[in-house]
Design a protein around this nucleic acid. Structure first.
Lengths: 220, 220
DNA sequence: TCCCGTCTCACCCCTTAGGGTGATGTCGGC
DNA sequence: GCCGACATCACCCTAAGGGGTGAGACGGGA
């Protein structure tokens, strides 16, 4: 019988080499491939049968989350184990949603890493302690979850919100949307009420804090 | 004769192990210590003679830059080689200023890493190609450098700016700083003029676009 | 010593913004 | 066809913000 077939995906060649050394030392594991980005990883998954993909989250040319989603789609039997430097709250959740079977931080001990690979290969999952806590927190917060943070606003109000977030005055908005100032004020009032914000200044803060303005949605 | 005495400083135990493996494979190098944070690193430097410290930038309990500065102070003969995941522009400069002899990204190839260690031990410096470019850019930009993007503001004005950025109204500011509203308005006016911003809404945008508010400098 | 920058405050002005209320017209669904 | 949700606009009022000017106090540097 052959060991668990593992592919390493990480843009750091040095780390890949070290992972290979660590994992190969475990007789249950066989590192069959290692690649430096998500695109190549998908290509390998398409052509070969793999048991576990050990994947870094942040990579050039298709990040780990996107690659995981694609792998889950084309090879559901292949387990993906995310490996990252920090337990980035956002990414943890995104990775799990994308179909990752586990999530480890890179400060994992070599023995624990090998064990985690075996765990996910056998169908269970593996979460680093810190990450597990993050997941639980998330689950608890779900009711308070804001899908868009703009829930409840009408189309027009969302539009107004966007302009407010970019620092537009009422008169600028009414010029841009070809509306009377009174109308603009009505919409602005609705936005403030629905989002429970005091004034347009807080709209801007709200927008940035919720990632609703891309950097460089500059005022002008 | 003994090899170049090297200490590894990185909070990722896995990476330390791998670095040790890679470097030990080079006969010129002898890895004598490895620790997980800056505090411990300084302790080791104080007690032992080292040639090179291979240090991660981001670490819990005293980051790499601070540790480097301290090492440069107490053991000027010991060379520090920074090792990081990304060539964070800010950190590159800070690290070099702190006294680092070189700066590598973790995607360095094993052979190049060993060579870099030997290079800095012999007194030259080692910069990863991408980092070198960053340094050169920096040197070229120095005159145009924005230390804080708040250049020209007085202490008080910077303080006011911070409160504006967090969405405080004039009355809140005057309560918080125990000033008359007239005074606050004077300062606000000065801030707007000096930064060439139209109103407090734009102050918030300016603050976020320039990274002057940490996420979670939440309004309240 | 005098001067300059800073911080403080006051008064006046006008514009902008926020809030309340109510009235159209349109569209889609029951 | 009726009703509700939206979008549009009007008029009113008050508060908050932005702009101009000037002035007293204080501290550090030329």
């Amino acid at each position: 019988m052959t060991g668990i077939r593992v592919m390493l995906v990480d843009d750091q060649e040095l780390l890949r080499a070290s992972l290979r050394t660590v994992l190969s030392a475990d007789e249950r594991i066989e590192v069959t491939h290692d690649v430096g980005n998500g695109i190549d990883a998908i290509e390998v998954v398409r052509r070969h049968r793999l048991d576990v993909v050990l994947m870094d989250i942040r990579m050039p040319r298709m990040d780990g989350v996107a690659a995981t989603a694609e792998i889950a789609r084309i090879a559901p039997a292949t387990r993906v184990l995310m490996l990252t430097t920090f337990d980035d709250d956002e990414l943890v959740v995104a990775a799990i949603r994308a179909g990752a079977s586990g999530y480890l931080t890179k400060d994992v001990r070599p023995a624990a890493l090998a064990q985690a690979v075996c765990d996910v290969a056998s169908g269970t999952s593996a979460l680093a302690p810190g990450v597990a806590a993050t997941i639980l927190d998330f689950v608890r917060q779900v009711p308070a979850r804001r899908t868009t943070a703009l829930e409840g606003l009408t189309r027009r109000e969302v539009e107004i919100f966007g302009l407010l977030a970019r620092g537009k005055s009422n008169s600028e908005i009414c010029a841009e949307l070809v509306l009377s100032e009174n109308t603009v004020k009505s919409h602005v009032r609705a936005v403030l009420q629905k989002l429970n914000l005091r004034d347009r200044v807080h709209v801007v803060i709200y927008a940035y804090e919720n990632g609703l303005v891309g950097r460089n949605d500059l005022p002008d």
